[in-house]
């Protein structure tokens, strides 16, 4: 059983974790075409090599990022998601009535 180094809890058996998919940029919902959106929702990149992935430590409900080499399953490094998601994300309000308060 592999060990994953959780940034919060340290090295743990992989059975304590859940895979959450590759880290991908979401297209702008306001400008993306239907086809681009379908691509985003349904298609996986399935890259060979080091990819950034979401992993969840189940006992603490803690999401973090793991860089994993899909060719040999080696987990290169792990770090908190705040290392790459640093800013508050906003979406452009289409009209004033329901904008965020």
């Amino acid at each position: 059983m592999k060990i994953i180094h959780c940034p919060l809890n340290g090295p743990r058996n992989i059975s304590e974790f859940v895979y959450g998919g590759e880290v991908v940029d979401m297209p702008d919902p306001a400008s993306a075409s239907d086809a681009e959106w379908a691509d985003h929702v349904f298609l996986e990149n399935n890259t060979r090599g080091v990819v950034r992935e979401w992993w969840l430590h189940v006992a603490t409900a803690y999401w973090f990022i793991a860089e994993r080499d899909t060719a040999n399953e080696e987990i290169v490094r792990t770090y908190p998601s705040s290392d790459i998601f640093k800013e508050r994300v906003t979406f452009a309000a289409p009209d004033e009535e329901q904008g965020t308060s």
Binding site: W54, L56, W63, S81, S82, F85, R88, V89
Partner: peptide
């Protein structure tokens, strides 16, 4: 939690 890890 996953979404807000991104939205902050």
């Amino acid at each position: 939690l996953w979404w807000n890890a991104q939205w902050r």
